[in-house]
Nucleic acid binder design. Structure first.
Length: 651
RNA sequence: GCGCCCGUAGCUCAGUGGAUAGAGCACCAGACUCCGGAUCUGGGUGCGGGGGUUCGAUUCCCUCCGGGCGCACCA
């Protein structure tokens, strides 16, 4: 960093700025920053960075692309640009930039020496608080792999945002008063089912939920019971409501245990029952009436209702009835109404707050708080500048209604900062569906089969984790006969966390994740354990360096050779890109992009490892490579931490 | 009916206007008595079809085909 006025990760921004200035000075042309493209060329002979700008501007400037390229090259050459050493031109009209790899290496070494586990953090989010709501599983049965996608994505998003400088508060909303819990209560009361002696409560409820839903089809009186139970739950202060609360609490405990083992933690549980009891909606209703945008319909199909008018929102224009009912003609509030109240609370503009209590101490040492209906006031929760709701894409319409309703009701700022992180659902591959006993049409390998909580079709999150642990533990035992079974199991668990989380995080969120046991259980190739293995290999090398030599190598002073190899260079660049990758993934809400970066980083190291002996290299080279391995190990550790994957010195 | 998403190699996926479209899995063949083979190297006439915009399209627009999802005074 010394001597350089900016960090390497800002290089792109700086170069774009210079190019922009060049266009202005040379041709009196004003381009927006977004219109200036900078990319990594496909071939090494085209430099380390390049821009096709001359091609694009040839027409408008009425000059040959190569002439423009030449002038831009000259303009760049006349500038003081650290990290760059040369600028060239390639037909049909590219400007190619060449990195000063020594300067870059120095800068990376220095930065890592100073920042250590903070290397890769950036400051874009500084001073901004973001509330991320994820998990949100109905507290009535075991979590399945669809919920796992939600929690893993949400957790990685939280980690990314934190490393991008945001203050992050993770909330887990518990719908303890809905039909889902009521169904279990019906099962317990009417069907008199009880868990077997050693049966997990969430697994027991998984089957019970299926059974109850099956019985609804045959027995109309049971459906009556469900309505009665729902009424009693809403009323409160009766044995049925107590039972419902007890079911919800016990299931939440199961869910938390499932998530904790994957390194997923929360700051606050918010309970639907508290929102109801504290009258969040009543409060919001008064607030919205005051603002004057709520409409009481006197006629038409919504006569007698309070509605929000969404007809002039493009997204809803083609709907037969774009208005959203918030209060029914019978005076009760709709789900959307409660959601609006809750969302306003997250932004701290509801004018009403929960009471709070400690819920428990989580295994990572942080306190999990819970909302309550009475007790202690605290003024630290909510009050966010940005709210991200991690919910699957089937709820897109509802989330759009929520966002536009806020805007139309006079909370424009809050509406615009309400983000639906919508991901596609998890479905089952034909092979996995077959394995679970789901009727599969033919022998084909294409296609997917939907999971269904009501029908009991799905892979339980813990079943998946257990199977991966078993597989990983076997592998560890094979490789390390000298270790104890306990050590095998411990490593197997950490590797399983890596495998499961990476599998849940690596895919683009707008694609349905077609879950397949064979793929999820794979520990080779583009998987979490591959990333972990790269880290372990680095740790192994450092462990074999002579102690005195190791202590003598200082990242800040180690000399950087002038003849850096292709593999060394690729690794250095990959390490240098961590801050930019973090920023990009955090700002674009793209955990999968970060997963891909991490895979690239690991691959760069693997290639370096295969081609570049460290311990047996000549002394100067050895010292440089040790420094490089140290840097990689730190960068990889930070990338793994961002993905919530354990970094293992041995595996 | 209206709207949204997806369609890239046998399979699972990267690639949000640029140079020869990339990975993993599966399959075949290889890797020095070298720091760990959970690794690496090699093996491939693939962007659903058709129009358009552009110097340039897997990427943007239109249309068709195929697959998924959503459009409550339900939660």
């Amino acid at each position: 960093m010394e001597g350089n006025s900016y960090h390497f990760y800002e290089l792109e921004r700086v170069v774009k700025g210079v190019l922009r200035q060049g266009l202005k000075e040379l041709y009196d042309l004003n381009l927006a920053e977004g219109e200036i493209t900078l990319e990594t060329p496909p071939q090494p002979e085209f430099g380390d960075l390049s821009t096709p700008l001359p091609l694009r501007l040839a027409k408008v400037l009425r000059r040959p692309p190569l002439e423009i390229a030449g002038q831009l090259r000259d303009f760049l050459s006349g500038r003081e640009l650290p990290y760059l050493r040369e600028f060239t031109v390639t037909a049909p009209g590219y400007v190619n930039l060449w990195l000063d790899i020594q300067a870059l290496t120095r800068s990376v070494f220095d930065e890592i020496a100073v920042e250590k586990d903070k290397y890769g953090e950036v400051k874009v989010g500084k001073g901004k608080k973001v509330v991320i709501e994820h998990t949100n599983i109905n507290p009535n049965k075991a979590a399945h792999i669809g919920h796992l996608r939600n929690s893993c994505l949400g957790d990685t998003l939280a980690r990314l945002k934190r490393r991008a400088g945001y203050e992050v508060e993770v909330q887990n909303y518990i719908d303890d008063t809905g039909v889902a819990v009521a169904d279990i209560v019906v099962g317990l009361q009417e069907l008199k089912r009880e868990p077997a002696p050693n049966e997990r409560f969430d697994y027991f409820c998984w089957d019970l939920y299926t059974e109850v839903n099956q019985k609804y089809e045959e027995d109309a009186s049971l459906k009556e019971k469900q309505r009665e139970v729902l009424r009693l739950i809403e009323e409160g202060n009766n044995p049925t409501a107590e039972l419902a609360k007890d079911v919800a609490r016990r299931i939440v405990e199961c869910h938390l245990n499932t998530m904790w083992r994957l390194g997923i933690y929360y700051n606050l549980l918010t309970w639907e029952s508290d929102i109801i009891r504290l009258g969040f909606w009543r409060h919001a209703f008064e607030l919205l009436k005051e603002k004057g945008h709520l409409v009481h319909e006197e006629e038409g199909e919504n006569a007698g209702c309070w509605v929000v008018k969404l007809g002039d929102v493009p997204e809803f224009q083609n709907l037969e009835n774009p208005d959203k009912v918030l209060v029914r003609s019978n005076g009760t509030a709709t789900y959307t109404a409660k959601d609006i109240a809750y969302q306003l609370w997250k932004f701290g503009v509801l004018g009403k707050d929960f009471f709070y209590d400690r819920y428990c101490l989580q295994p990572n040492g942080t306190v999990l708080w819970t909302s309550t209906s009475e007790g202690t006031k605290m003024d630290r929760f909510g009050r966010a500048q940005q709210v991200i709701n991690v919910i699957d894409l089937r709820q897109k319409y509802l989330q759009d209604v929520l966002r536009f309703s806020l805007i139309k009701l006079g909370f424009e700022e809050q509406g615009k900062n309400s983000i639906h992180f919508g991901y596609e659902v998890v479905a089952l591959s034909p092979a996995t569906a077959r394995e679970l006993g789901v009727p599969v049409e033919d022998e084909g390998e294409k296609g997917m089969y939907a999971m269904s909580g009501r029908k009991g079709i799905g892979v339980k999150a813990d079943d998946l984790v257990e199977r991966v642990i078993e597989r990983a533990t076997e592998e560890v035992a094979k490789r390390h006969p000298e270790m104890s079974p306990e050590e095998h199991k411990k490593l197997g668990q950490d590797i399983a966390v890596g495998a499961v989380r990476y599998y849940m995080e690596r895919f683009n969120i707008s694609n349905v994740l077609v879950f397949d046991f064979n793929e999820a259980l794979n520990l080779q190739g583009n998987t979490g354990p591959y990333l972990q293995y790269a880290y372990a290999r680095a740790a192994n090398i450092l462990g074999r360096v002579d102690r005195e030599v190791l202590e003598d190598i200082d990242l800040r002073t180690v000399s950087v050779p002038s003849d850096i190899t292709a593999e060394e260079k690729k690794l250095i660049r990959a390490i240098a890109e961590l801050p930019a990758a973090t920023e990009r993934a955090a700002e674009n809400l793209a955990p999968s992009a970060f997963a891909e970066y991490a895979y690239n980083l690991a691959t760069s190291f693997m290639n370096f490892y295969e081609t570049s002996p460290v311990l047996s290299a000549p002394p100067a080279r050895m010292r440089f490579r040790v420094a490089l391995v140290m840097s990689f190990k730190q960068a990889m550790a930070n990338a793994l931490a961002t993905l919530g994957i354990p970094a293992l010195p041995r595996m």
